[in-house]
Simulated assay, not measured.
Amino acid sequence: MKYSDLETKSKHFINGKISQYMDAYIRQNKVWTPEQMYSDFFEFINGEINKSSYTKHSQNGIIWSSELSMNWLLTSEGNSTVMDRFQKKYLKDKPVANRKSPLVERVRFGIYWKNLYDINFGLKDGYNFIETKELKNLKVVPWTIEHVNKELLDKYTCTLKESIEKVSTSFLEKTFSEYWFKHYYSDHSNSALIPEVCGMRSKFYYYNYNNHNYTTRAEIPVKGLIDKIKPINFRFDFLVINFNKQKMVFIELDGFEFHKTRDQQTLDSIKRNKASSLGIPLLTFTSKRISDDIQSVFSELDSFLK
């Protein structure tokens, strides 16, 4: 069946389906091509058809189903129509679609009950994506010292240096950050060193029961009041996001005395699993290496920092 032969309701459904998918896709993938969107769209449509996930409603005793419209999208005319829409959208939004991904839209750092900071790129009100036309006007390079300083000064009237000094309290963290201040902080085009990272779009959690640590509630060997066991926010020592090289890394500083207990080893494992699920490498540096040869530590990190 040709598009011209479809009833008005079916045409509206098709146009709405394509538009809704484009809007959602662009929010989640600020870097994209028509071909990528086309491939993902038809994977989505085939999945909906295989599950028979059709829109149905009754009007004046007549039952309408989106099945015909969904199947029309799989025709050659449907394929061509979809690709044409995606290509026109790409040309319109090319300045945004062509730019590198900001990698993450939000980073939360600090300690939950005090000195907690939210820094964003491409979000307003902390949750909603800004309009495409607004994104085009953002000139600052995401996650550089310049960007993070601007966010912190606008929202919290403090600099990155001041916030690091507030939240990084251990000897290792102070030693590590002081070296970074001395060798990297003067060039604000360098990637920011973000301390005590406790979340991105959502916070990082684990659970503790009877002095043992667990990744999820389901792992806790107890029945009954399990839902009343509150999650605990955990933090990575530092995060670096290099927008220009499209690279990220979590950094953990390992003081042996603190990390040798079984429960701390479990928490370290939870952190590794979280980093892996986010697709972010996790580098661990021992206190001995930081004390004996901190220069080699930063030489290893240079590809992330510069």
Rank of each mutant, 00 (worst) to 15 (best):
K288R: 14
T33V: 00
K51M: 04
I220L: 05
R217M: 08
F13P: 01
F285L: 00
Q59H: 10
K230R: 15
H12M: 08
E48D: 14
F13Q: 01
P102H: 12
N242P: 06
F176H: 14
P34H: 04
G199N: 04
M70Q: 08
S291Q: 13
Q20G: 09
K139W: 05
V107N: 03
N190T: 01
F176P: 05
L91K: 10
S277L: 04
Y156P: 04
K11Y: 12
W143C: 11
R272D: 03
E173M: 07
D187I: 09
F171R: 09
P221S: 13
M22T: 00
R289V: 01
M200G: 05
G78C: 00
V141F: 04
R27G: 05
G61F: 12
V197E: 13
R217C: 00
S186H: 10
E165N: 12
T159F: 03
G110S: 13
D302L: 07
P221I: 08
T8C: 02
K274T: 15
E131Q: 12
K306Y: 15
K9V: 09
S80E: 14
F256H: 09
E77D: 10
K51C: 03
I194K: 07
V82I: 06
Y206L: 12
D93E: 15
K133C: 08
I290C: 08
L135H: 13
Q28D: 15
E196H: 15
L152A: 12
S296T: 10
D84I: 06
I45T: 00
V96M: 06
G47S: 07
S269K: 14
F44W: 11
I119E: 01
W72H: 01
H147I: 04
D40N: 13
Y90G: 02
D93M: 11
D23I: 06
S76E: 12
K166A: 03
F285T: 07
N46Q: 07
D268N: 12
G61L: 04
Q246I: 09
I290L: 10
T55C: 08
L153Q: 15
V141L: 09
N149I: 09
E131S: 15
A218T: 11
E7A: 09
G126R: 12
V107R: 05
W32E: 02
S52F: 05
F236C: 10
G126Q: 11
E146G: 02
T75E: 02
H57F: 15
K89S: 05
F234E: 03
S177V: 01
V107D: 01
T261D: 10
K306I: 06
T75D: 04
I251K: 06
S168E: 05
T33I: 02
K203V: 02
F204R: 08
E146Y: 03
K100S: 11
V222G: 02
Y156W: 07
D263R: 10
D254L: 06
G16Q: 13
M37K: 03
I251E: 00
F304I: 11
Q264S: 02
S65C: 11
C198Q: 13
F204E: 06
N213C: 14
N213R: 14
Q36N: 10
S276L: 14
M37R: 03
G255T: 08
L138F: 01
K11M: 04
N211H: 14
K124M: 15
V96P: 04
Q20H: 13
E165G: 01
F204T: 10
I14F: 00
G122P: 01
